[in-house]
């Protein structure tokens, strides 16, 4: 299993009710259902992925975060809301974060780090928009329209009063690496954040 998914599943407790935003082919939810006895739903817009989810018994709802939002879900109706590798592809990541923490006690977010040294290096040297394993697109066809760095994300969390409970950093192949842990914003390619709303004191 991918290292980022491995990390996420450790944070899901048995019987948790989970919402997975952009659940893809349902790999993670399928795993959580079988191994963690979790319940819940995935949201997805890719027709092939939706079909795969249905075939493997993952509850999937065709719903577009950008155009339909999450208003149909009730406050505090999930234990955990997940969003793996999709934050950078929605139109308003800040609002999606708010929604995640409205629906769930806890959120888990993963996204590619635009400050990774190879991307910085690529841009500095060639003067062209960087591409990488985590970001394998051209500037004109990329679904990743809201790229940010770990620092950007953390600044947004501070501004919103979102508490980061843990952060784990992996490389482009989703492998754990000590280098990335050492200097994440430069050497980490993908981060897994576990967040929660700071309780008003």
């Amino acid at each position: 299993m991918r290292a980022d998914l491995q990390i996420i599943q450790q944070w899901v407790e048995p019987g948790h009710h989970v919402l997975d935003l952009g659940c893809g082919d349902g790999t993670l939810l399928d795993f959580l259902q079988r191994e963690r006895n979790a319940t819940g739903f995935g949201l997805e817009i890719n027709p092939e992925h939706i079909t795969t989810c249905m075939g493997r018994g993952v509850s999937v709802i065709e719903q577009n975060l950008d155009t339909q939002g999450l208003e149909n879900f009730e406050d505090n109706s999930f234990d955990i809301v997940l969003m793996t590798q999709a934050l950078q592809a929605v139109r308003r990541p800040d609002q999606v974060l708010d929604e995640m923490l409205r629906l769930g006690n806890e959120g888990i977010v993963t996204f590619p780090n635009f400050a990774h040294w190879r991307l910085r290096w690529g841009l500095a040297l060639s003067g062209r928009m960087p591409e990488s394993e985590a970001l394998p697109y051209k500037w004109y066809n990329t679904p990743n329209i809201r790229l940010c760095t770990f620092h950007d994300f953390e600044a947004l969390c501070r501004q919103k009063g979102i508490r980061i409970k843990s952060r784990r950093v992996v490389d482009g192949q989703h492998q754990d690496s000590w280098l990335a842990r050492l200097w994440p914003n430069l050497l980490g390619e993908i981060a897994v954040y576990r967040i929660t709303q700071e309780k008003a004191s």
Binding site: H17, F41, I50, V58, V60, E62, N72
Partner: peptide
């Protein structure tokens, strides 16, 4: 259909939906 689906989600029933 979405009305139906949303009620199922709120009731924590297992449901899949596509348009």
């Amino acid at each position: 259909s979405e009305e139906m689906v949303n009620a199922m989600i709120a009731a924590r029933r297992k449901v899949s939906y596509a348009e």
